[in-house]
Design a protein around this nucleic acid. Structure first.
Lengths: 336, 336
DNA sequence: GGAAGGGTTGTTAGCGCTAACAAGAGCGGG
DNA sequence: CCCGCTCTTGTTAGCGCTAACAACCCTTCC
């Protein structure tokens, strides 16, 4: 009797109680086909009675699979990343996988690489990198060889599959909506230039203007924060001929609305505003914000799908899964 | 030569290359004092050259410690939980621990218990439960015996230590601020009744009114969402004698502001509004919101501190660590 | 009746690591 | 000169699990 009383039960204890070998217990636990029904129930009873739970470290050691997936993300207090990670977590758990998160304060190549190493050290079977910045996407080049991975919003990330929302189309939709309302041109408050999403939105905006034969004013650069939107809004308020603005995210749009209100510029009467993201707050801005909805949950689900497929198949084709965005019309943009 | 070429190197490979035993490699990796400096560098060189990383599953198997901490949280897309989890993650990583997250769609006792079981199965050394609801706090009663745990916002969670923001004081601060501005009484839009935070805020609000000898109007119940705030705002707009409202979170305050604006009720001229949370958007509401700031980062850090202390000391005293809130004065509340 | 074959169970050998003990080297003191 | 000490290193025995193989049933078929 070597096992001390306070140690959790192990497979051998279950086996002894059920009068079988530990291997049979293992077979029951792993749903092997060739176990007699009666034996199975006897084992299950013993498991219940002892409160046995199998030691996953031992299992991982021998199978070389941890059933743990790693997620690297940037500032998970932001709505977009938080929602994406949430979607990933739900999808992974539904597939029987476990999620570990490394949330980076700032994204640079070294930081992302460290995070990936960290996850690899801990035995992650695969990794999802929420890599919205150019520098983060670059870090995907030094993934450990053979490590399955998926990039979310990761641009053309080498041979790593990518899941993303179609930023270009979303921005085009927003801009076309404003043009269709009779605005001669549309101004743009953009996100930080090294963000791929910001770039896509600038591209879609420009394309829509070009397609309509309108000239594009110089975009005002923001950093996603309401404060930067506010500053952009103050500048827009001073431009006499602005009638329509497409803002690259809802938080900045809030800042723009605030600055315009302070300057006595009425929205939507004098200037129409369209945002991007559809955060839960936007429907209650003053005025309620017309914006572009991103289905972050779908992004999360798709990224896990792609990752699991990669882990099963082995191959890592440079796939690209694009989630369509959707224009949500409220009252911040009206006919000119 | 049994080891196939594509398998990652193991300790024995390092040992062979460095001309020592695998145990010496282990000693180097674990910073044992009694290793000759020259041997240590030789081992380190071999590790570098082989790109060796130790197998944590094997280590966990023998040490019975995973250096992984589990976090159970409710809807991490909300600002509060997201920020708290972020703080927890940063603090844990700084302490050399790894974080796994289970994010619940809805909180009930069974869900929390399952999540805890899940984390325990995966070998978590300790668990932080972000348990803002009464039912979640109850689930802490069936923690696996001996599992170190900390509750965030968890009420009096049995013998589990608790870290929380002082909701009562925060609400009192907000209410006193409004009373000091000359308002006869203060209305309240509350959070869902089973949330401990909502309850604490109601308590602080009531206490401040009672201390000033004012009567408390019936609180309007919301569910934290902007929509519920909007509905409460519509009702408030119809009450002729309302001059001041304390709203239990900023998202609902946004809804209230929107409803009042639609009803033609000017804020702060006719009604003053104070929120709670200080989300990044609140400074740009119309008008900028006076609110109560919660230091979620501090909550995260403290919870990890308490958890680590518990893991080191063994004992689980029913400690309670309270983080003070701070009133942030902007322009949504003015002198009557 | 015996060979062949499938279903069910047990036995054995690791997975890669750390803890415990053992062993050898080097050194000072009686 | 040998005992006892410390410092350094090696050897051995698991941690709890799964994979591979072996062994034993019970059929079925010629």
């Amino acid at each position: 009797m070597r096992r001390t009383r306070d140690r959790p039960p192990v497979m051998a204890d279950v086996a002894r109680m059920a009068g079988v070998s530990h291997q049979t217990v293992s077979r029951v636990l792993n749903d092997h086909p060739n176990v007699r029904a009666e034996t199975r129930t006897r084992v299950m009873e013993a498991i219940d009675r002892l409160g046995y739970r199998r030691n996953l470290a031992a299992r991982t050691l021998v199978t070389r699979h941890s059933r743990m997936l790693g997620v690297v993300s940037f500032d998970t207090t932001l709505y977009g990343p938080a929602s994406t990670v949430y979607g990933i977590e739900q999808a992974a758990r539904a597939a029987g996988y476990f999620i570990s998160i490394v949330s980076l304060k700032s994204i640079d190549r070294a930081g992302v690489r460290d995070a990936i190493d960290y996850l690899a050290d801990h035995g992650a079977d695969g990794i999802v990198v929420v890599a919205p910045q150019r520098s983060a996407a670059a870090a995907l080049e030094d993934l450990p060889p053979g490590m399955p991975a998926v990039a979310v919003e990761g641009g053309h990330a080498g041979e790593v599959p990518v899941v993303c929302v179609d930023q270009f189309t979303g921005a085009r939709l927003a801009t076309e909506h404003l043009l269709a309302l009779g605005h001669r041109t549309v101004w743009h408050v953009s996100g930080p230039p090294d963000w791929l999403e910001a770039e896509g939105r600038v591209g879609g905006w420009r394309a829509a203007l070009a397609a309509a034969g309108r000239e594009a004013p110089e975009p005002l650069a923001g950093d996603w924060s309401p404060r930067s939107g506010y500053e952009a809004g103050r500048r827009l308020a001073r431009e006499p001929d602005v009638t329509a603005v497409f803002v690259a995210n809802d938080q900045m749009a809030l800042g723009v609305l605030r600055a315009l209100a302070e300057a006595g510029v009425r929205v939507p009467e004098r200037i129409s505003v369209v945002g991007f993201d559809d955060i839960p707050e936007s429907a209650y801005f003053s005025p309620p914000l017309t914006t572009v909805r991103q289905d972050f949950g779908a992004v999360g689900r798709h990224s896990i799908e792609l990752l699991l497929r990669q882990m099963a198949g082995g191959a890592r084709g440079g796939e690209r899964l694009v989630v369509p965005p959707e224009l949500v019309v409220r009252s911040s943009a009206v006919r000119r």
